[in-house]
């Protein structure tokens, strides 16, 4: 079973990479670009066939390692 964990900086946490991309898009002439935020996408291949159990396991992985919940929030989805 494949799951996708999306990790993003929390609101209020400075995201200098997002700011740099925002600036570069403006330099390239793209108009109307608002705030740009960057994060990570982590794909997990998990054994088992129970989607709810796999999701719970991935959430525990996110809390323990994949995200630093001091500065990041995460979202787990089935692929």
């Amino acid at each position: 079973m494949k799951l996708i964990v999306t990790v993003m900086p929390k609101n209020g946490v400075l995201d200098p990479q997002g700011k740099a991309i925002e600036h570069a898009l403006g330099t390239l002439g793209f108009e109307g670009v608002g705030e740009v935020r960057t994060g990570k996408v982590i794909e997990l291949e998990l054994a088992g066939s129970d989607p709810a159990a796999a999701k719970a396991q991935a959430e525990e992985m996110a809390r323990k390692l994949l995200a630093n919940t001091v500065i990041e929030s995460f979202r787990v989805e089935l692929a």
Binding site: V13, L14, P16, Q17, A20, N68, V70, I71
Partner: peptide
């Protein structure tokens, strides 16, 4: 130490990148 939870907070990318 911050990642281990032994000290509070986190170290982010330098603001200047």
């Amino acid at each position: 130490l911050t990642e281990a939870g032994l000290l509070p907070g986190a170290l982010l990318r330098n603001a200047s990148l």
